[in-house]
Each structure stands twice: as C-alpha cells, then as structure tokens.
Design a protein around this nucleic acid. Structure first.
Lengths: 262, 262
DNA sequence: TAGTATGCTACTGTATACAATAGAATGCAG
DNA sequence: CTGCATTCTATTGTATACAGTAGCATACTA
C-alpha cells in the first residue's frame, strides 16, 4: 500500500546514515542494518516487541556479529532500545516522545533559520528554496483540479521529498553539520514510527505552502526574528497534525482488538 | 596534575552514559569502553591518531568483540571517527567543531530556558538553581581572599560541578529528555577535547556568576525573552573563552615542536 | 638509482564456539 | 488445583578462528 513512501524513507535513511558514519558498502553489516531497519519500518518487528540477534542472524542469513553491530547502531539512532534486562526491544514512540522530538526540531530549526537570516545567502540556495516551495503549491493545485480531498501516494511521496528538501536546505545554509545531522535523525525517527496513513488535505497543504513561503521571505529580507517566529509556527503546525494522527491511530488501535500487550 | 578534573569528567561521562543506554555493569564491555575513553581523555591516544581494535584488545586484556562494541559506541558519541579507509581515528576537534558544538548548545539551551520560563516552576528547583549560582559566587570570594589570580584545581573541579549542575537542572526543568541528553553529550565532548589548562580568573568568574543570576531571575519572573537572551549571551561568553583557550593552545603546539603529523 | 613487483604483517570483517543466564516449562508437594 | 523448586532452552556475552586486504618493506629489474 504505502510501499512507495516506505521506499523513500528507507532511501533517505541510508543516505543520511552513509554520509554520517561509514562508507560501508560491504555486505553483511549493511545487509543486517538495512534488513532490520526494513523490518522495523514495515512493522514486521512490532513496536515494543523484543528482538533477538540470534533469530535475526538466522533470518538474515548472516552471523550474529554483524547483526550485533547493526542492533547497536539502530539503538544509537533510537529505533531500538537496548533493554537493561538484556533483550533489545523495538522502540515505541509515545505521545510524549513525539512532542519531545518536535520540540527538539523546533529548537534547532528556529536557531538555524535565525542564523541563516542573519547571513548573506547564496542566490542559488534561495532559488532552490523557492522552487521547493513552489512545488508544494503545484501539489495543492493538482489536488484542487483532481477533485479529490487528499493527496494520493505518489503525490505524498513528492510532498515529503519537497518538504524534507526545503527544511534540509534551510538548515544546511546555517552551516552547522551537527545540527543538520540531529534534525535529520529526528525527522526520520518521527516519520518511521508515525507513517502517514492519510494523504494531506487541501487546507493543510495550503497552510504548509504559505508557511514555507513566509519563512523564505523572511530569510530573503534578513528578518531573523520574523523567520524564527514563522518556522516555529510551522513546526508547531506539524506537531499538531502529527498528534491528531497519533491520537486517531491510538483510538483505532484500542478499538480494533486486544491491545498489543497480550 | 589535572587528574582530579579528568576523574570528574570520566565520572560524569559514565553516569550519563549509563542512564542513557545500558545498565551494563558487566565487565568486559564496560572495561573496554571506560579504558579506551580514559586513554582518549588522558591523551594516551593522540587526537587524530589511529587506533586498532586489535592492539586495544591486547592492551586491555579483553577480546576484540567488546572492544569493537566500545569503539562503535565511542564513535556514536563523537570521540572517535570511524574512518572510511577502515581504521578508526581519535576525533580531533577543530576550531569549527567547537563553534558548531557551542551553537548546538545555544540552540537547545535557549529553547529549553524559554520553555522553562513560560512554565510554572517547582520552588525546589529554583532553590537549587539559586544555591548553585551562589556557589559560584562563593568561589569568586574565595579567589578574592586567596590573593591568587586564578582558581586552583580543586576549585575548578567545584566550579565545573556547579556550572554543570546549573545548566543541567535548567534544562531538566524544560522536561525534554532528548534535549537534555544531547546537551550533556555536547558538553562532555567539548570538555574532553578542550580540557581546561588554566583555572578561571576573577573577571570571568564574576561574569559567569552574574549571568547565571540573570538567567535565573528572568526564569523566576517568567520573562522568557529575557531569559533566552541572557542564556544566549552566557553561552557565547563561554564560546569566546573556549576559543581563546583553543587558539592559545594551538599557538603553543605549533611552537613547541614538529606538529603531530610527522 | 629509481621504479615496479611481490611478499609479509598487521589488521579488519565475519563466523563460530563456549560458558553463563534469564525466563519458560516442567514437575513435585501440599 | 496451586505454589514453589528445578531443569531446559533460547539467547546473550565473550573469545577465538579464519579468510581476505591494505599498506609497507623488501627485493628485483632496468
């Protein structure tokens, strides 16, 4: 169903990962890492469920050693929790976790945008930002014309790409690799555990488009305070939307069947 | 000479680490982790130098497996860089790295303080903050009376503890564990690679004392904007001080002998 | 003497072996 | 039938074995 979106996420994840840590194109470790990651993303490994390096090794057809490393790495990235009582468990984002992650993003992005707005910016970056913003406008128009109420999968993929691109470039312009890295990890974590079930609607799309535009304008005009306020609002919008999604999902889950803690 | 300070750092580091990841009180892994960490902190493993899990395993008297994991963890924490060309190298903080780390701290602490100032705060926390601030004032007075120009080692230890405590509590009050964790890691990283060679002087101490006081006052009075501005200034002061230290050390190094790249 | 080939050495990546253990299953007593 | 002790099993932590490799040194050639 949403394999396309998942595929994109996976791609983004491994891209980030590669650049940040290892140029490890070798087989076993990468195989284990990607394999386990995929299992988590696809839900094959249930959130909150236990995993064992032993069984994973068997399933993946590699030995425990690379699996072990992969687990460590995934734990460091927040996808797994290395349980004190030994077995690692798949991370489960609570409502509070989502709030914390968005706060983290807000702190960092607000700072980054403020710094960027104070600097003289390369025109190429600004052009690209504008183009990324426009792309979201195009999606909105597409939605309008289509007569449907929400974006389809392919459109959501494009949306995610443009949205991610906008934020990433904005942060990159602040020239702080650590901040960029943390924000990337944070976004990925959020997205992996709170996958869009539903395409964005017209109102939301319009709002996002407007907010991106306003941030961009403030940056161009070197108004750091305004830019910071705008991006802050924008991120809080995202948080609200995500929380609604979460609450909706939680209700659904509790209704559907005996909770995931049997 | 500065073993006391180093000891403190080590303690702080493992405390943080334990709480964040593993209750791993077991032997080999912890032994490897702490051992390698100690080697890095003490300079036994030169910054920028290569390490091999092989030789480390021999030196530490454990097998390669736990060493491997320790290396991975240290790499995740930023003390090592997992080189694409295979051998891990001990991280070396450049001037730019220091700036980036302080920016990261600034982004997060400013956000956290702003949030805290907006909340109703527990009186116990405020009392503790006040006491931590006062302790720095006491140190200043001690310095005055002693007639010396800078703090001694024992005093610096106390200073670091009080300073760390102040910032940590301030962030903890914002109730965001991830932000707290990242700031802790960042601070530790900075401190490990840029160890104080010199005790603080009177002026600096006074400035820090005043700044802490002002931040605290703004928080108490629920003036987020002011609190944010104050903590921002404070962190920038720290950065300036650290950069001077860095530049001083760099000059010294380049004068002393054939650079560390033979 | 300089440049290239070749082999050596010290490593890494991966697999596997072995001991210890935590939790489940089993059995035993009441 | 229930509560406790005991064994069993799956799985971890750790060590080690084995194969491949990068970089160096040595030797060989022009």
């Amino acid at each position: 169903m949403s394999t396309g979106l998942k595929g994109f996420i996976l791609k983004a994840m491994s891209r980030k990962t590669d650049s940040s840590q290892r140029s490890d194109s070798s087989s076993s470790r990468q195989k284990a890492y990607l394999g386990i990651q995929r299992m988590i993303v696809s839900g094959e490994l249930q959130s909150g469920g236990m995993v064992s390096e032993y069984s994973l090794a068997k399933k993946l057809g590699v030995s425990r050693t690379p699996v072990r490393e992969a687990l460590g790495r995934l734990a460091a990235e927040g996808l797994l929790e290395q349980n004190p009582n030994r077995r690692p468990v798949v991370a489960m984002l609570t409502r509070q976790d989502i709030i914390e992650l968005y706060e983290l993003r807000e702190a960092l992005e607000v700072y980054a945008v403020g710094k960027t707005a104070r600097q003289t910016t390369g025109p190429a970056d600004l052009t690209r930002l504008q183009s990324l913003t426009d792309s979201i406008g195009v999606l909105r128009e597409e939605l309008d014309r289509s007569g449907k109420s929400t974006l389809g999968h392919e459109q959501m993929q494009r949306f995610v790409a443009h949205d991610l691109g906008f934020h990433t470039l904005l942060i990159r312009m602040a020239a702080n690799t650590r901040i960029l890295k943390i924000v990337n990890e944070t976004r990925l974590l959020i997205r992996i555990f709170a996958i869009h079930r539903q395409g964005h609607g017209k109102l939301l799309l319009e709002k996002i488009h407007r907010q991106h535009g306003e941030v961009l304008r403030a940056v161009v005009n070197h108004e750091p305070a305004r830019a910071m306020r705008q991006i802050s609002e924008h991120i809080q919008t995202s948080l609200q939307e995500r929380l609604e999604e979460y609450d909706h999902w939680e209700v659904e889950r509790s209704l559907s069947e005996g909770s995931p803690f049997p």
